[in-house]
């Protein structure tokens, strides 16, 4: 390519900022560009995953706190044990995190 007048299409202009620069040919340049751009996207997604995990922890902690308060208030309403008494051990949920484990039945 000698000058702008020799361009055959838009693809030839991809990184040509001046007539003294020419872009690397498409065949050779594309894998490098993809490594870079996908690498960046991977980094972004990793960060996003970390944020989601942290947020999940925060929500779980807050959920436990709200449940504790609700139990305590119900206890007060019924005139039962004070709020810092140990919780009932029977009951309950597998919760939204149940997808994190699988259950195996053990016969005894």
């Amino acid at each position: 390519m000698r000058g702008v007048s020799d361009l055959k299409g838009l693809a030839d202009m991809r990184t040509a900022l001046s007539t003294h620069l020419r872009s690397r040919s498409r065949d050779k340049g594309t894998p490098y560009q993809e490594v870079f751009s996908f690498g960046l996207e991977g980094l972004r997604l990793e960060r996003e995953l970390e944020l989601v995990a942290k947020r999940q922890d925060r929500v779980r902690r807050r959920l436990a706190e709200t449940r504790k308060v609700v139990e305590a208030r119900i206890g007060q309403i019924r005139g039962a044990a004070p709020s810092d008494s140990p919780p009932a051990v029977t009951g309950d949920e597998q919760g939204p995190s149940s997808h994190l484990w699988q259950t195996m039945t053990v016969k005894y």
Binding site: L100, W101, Q102, T103, T105, V106, Y108
Partner: peptide, 19 residues
């Protein structure tokens, strides 16, 4: 077999003749 990263928890259950 548990998928990677998934913990296995137990659910004990008595046998029919449990005394």
């Amino acid at each position: 077999m548990a998928p990677e990263g998934v913990a296995t928890v137990l659910r004990p259950s008595p046998l029919p003749g449990f005394v």
